[in-house]
Design a binder for these strands. Sequence first.
DNA 1: CATGAATGAGTGTTCATTCAT
DNA 2: AATGAATGAACACTCATTCAT
Lengths: 208, 208, 208, 208
Amino acid sequence: MPAKSSSDKQGGRTFIESARRAQIVDAAIVVIAEQGYAGASFAKIAKQAGLSSTGMISYHFKGKDDLIREVVAEVMRVNGEFLLSKMDTEASVLGRLRLYITARLALLDEYPKHQRALQTIVNAVHNEDPELRGLTPAMTALATEQERRIRVGQEQGEIRQLDPRVLVLAVNGALNEATSRAAFDPDFDTAACARELADLFDRAARKQ
Amino acid sequence: MPAKSSSDKQGGRTFIESARRAQIVDAAIVVIAEQGYAGASFAKIAKQAGLSSTGMISYHFKGKDDLIREVVAEVMRVNGEFLLSKMDTEASVLGRLRLYITARLALLDEYPKHQRALQTIVNAVHNEDPELRGLTPAMTALATEQERRIRVGQEQGEIRQLDPRVLVLAVNGALNEATSRAAFDPDFDTAACARELADLFDRAARKQ
Amino acid sequence: MPAKSSSDKQGGRTFIESARRAQIVDAAIVVIAEQGYAGASFAKIAKQAGLSSTGMISYHFKGKDDLIREVVAEVMRVNGEFLLSKMDTEASVLGRLRLYITARLALLDEYPKHQRALQTIVNAVHNEDPELRGLTPAMTALATEQERRIRVGQEQGEIRQLDPRVLVLAVNGALNEATSRAAFDPDFDTAACARELADLFDRAARKQ
Amino acid sequence: MPAKSSSDKQGGRTFIESARRAQIVDAAIVVIAEQGYAGASFAKIAKQAGLSSTGMISYHFKGKDDLIREVVAEVMRVNGEFLLSKMDTEASVLGRLRLYITARLALLDEYPKHQRALQTIVNAVHNEDPELRGLTPAMTALATEQERRIRVGQEQGEIRQLDPRVLVLAVNGALNEATSRAAFDPDFDTAACARELADLFDRAARKQ
DNA sequence: CATGAATGAGTGTTCATTCAT
DNA sequence: AATGAATGAACACTCATTCAT
């Protein structure tokens, strides 16, 4: 068995290379969350990461697009894991909806910077940078899956006749708004908000 | 009756000065809506406005803050007028809520760039530009008023026991999400979305 | 005798024209004294003069050079008048030297902004603006006259053998330094400084 | 013994970094001396230094303040070294005064641009750039030390009763004036001026 | 693998000046 | 005689990116 070396690879990248990328991505998340998208220059990210030059970042990422994409991927990976862990047992559609709302708001306490960063990126990038459009498919895929679930609930008689797309839109819109609010209002009570929102959309969607 | 001259003033500004400012504000709205906040440089705005230099903009506005503030003010003026014209007769709280949702979505057809620009600015500015925080009070004031209305509805037995702040958050979150969606999905049916959302929040809020 | 009209001229300029020029020159003196040469933009001078646009200044002066030259001329006129009024009776060269020193320092109390403005201009303009070199002749002429006087004093046995140019240089250098000091040290005692400097140069120049 | 590399540091800066900074500071000294403070734009300094862009300067200095401060520090370092080397043996106060005058004027031959640049900066910065006020303390400290020396001379009976502050003011004023003169009069004889000034202030200050 | 140095386009802003009215 | 509007060059400064070492 050969000795561990810096050229051991995982996913086409050496160990140390992956570590550096992760370090930079983490720094980027913090800077974006705290300083906004426009404030997230390579200089500031390098400083946050404890690197001495921006060249470092350009060396590990093909461009700013690449870095931002990685940030989004990382946040979605973390969120996905968390959400999955909260939902896997529940069977009913309305129950899953309630769990989703609760879990999304729990994320605000668990990974506040991640949520803020993701939202900042999505808002900033929406139309500006054509190279970055590629990040939304992953999010629309999620929405599509949610809509499918709602339809199942309608077929099973759990959920009233409504446009599933609009319900999904409303739920996610409300959750995003809560994310914004939580970022600036330190007194924002995520648990209470979760209960209220869950009740609210339960009533809105439940048959009868 | 004195002859009209270029030095006639209104609100401390020359006629032509006001016209130029309006022209620049309009150009800024378009650029911000289409290219995002980061893409809205003086150079691009000047080009959109058909001006030959960015100095022109600096000549008419004290700084970028000033311009952005004017953009926000203009959008809120237009929106405010439109919303008021749609709401003044209705008496019941739930009725007003329905009208508000419908009117907000109608704005997407009436002034799509305005909505997109406002949303872009609010998102971008939230934490980035401390000079511009001053624009949010006007919007929180609106939210506070909406919460007050909901409380009235609760006292009158129209609306069930719920946290008014959360209902307002959810409604506005959904409307903002719809605004985002409409900006990129040309097939987005605002009228249908309005009906669905109105029903949704009516059910969510109505007593029994 | 014809009625007074705005086209009455003096020195090739109408009355009102001269008044405007004087008003602008006065404003320029204040701004230059308070904000320095680089800070003395047409915009600031216009504001200080209570004018609404910088075009006004360009209209009355051929260029910035022209304005600055006028400022220098005005200060030297005022200073010249004051100095003459203080010196005309004294006969001895050393006496005149003492009077000159005293009068120059008295000017700091009488017209502080004028002195500060003149010094600022001379320092800033020395080599920068070739168009403005023309203002120094007037000042070198003064120095030459002072040197001539010293020579007279030497011939009359009042003043010891020394290079008159160096004495004049030293006296004026000391006075300029005092002007600088007075501008920033509110406790600077011009009268005391005048007595000390007068004694100092009297001893330095007096025969035996 | 490790090989020399570009990352060898001294004083927290790379070797080549320090070299570039020195190169830029030298260029700045020349430009300021020749074109004045207002004329000393990054563009002109970059050109003088043979650099292709002004970004270079911003890369090596935090801002214009930083560069100017460095220029002042460099000139004062050079001057300080030179003055110290000329004065260390002399004991009597009047002797030291004579040496100081001579050395200051010798500096005009040794480092003419340095003197011109320093004077230009001090004059320009006095009231204009509040960020740069911090450079004067170093110079007032020098003056205070000189005044102290004069007082010692008075206690030792070498120097007559006079206000030491005024003597120091006069000496430095005269030396500054000579610096100005030397900058524009190529025939200015610094050595002769030094002898004359030394005699002049010796007589002015000496007891009896 | 890493980095310090360099680049050049782009940022918002100020400037003296011109000109039609 | 006066002025508001416009101009375009210049300003210091930041940016993501490249590259030799």
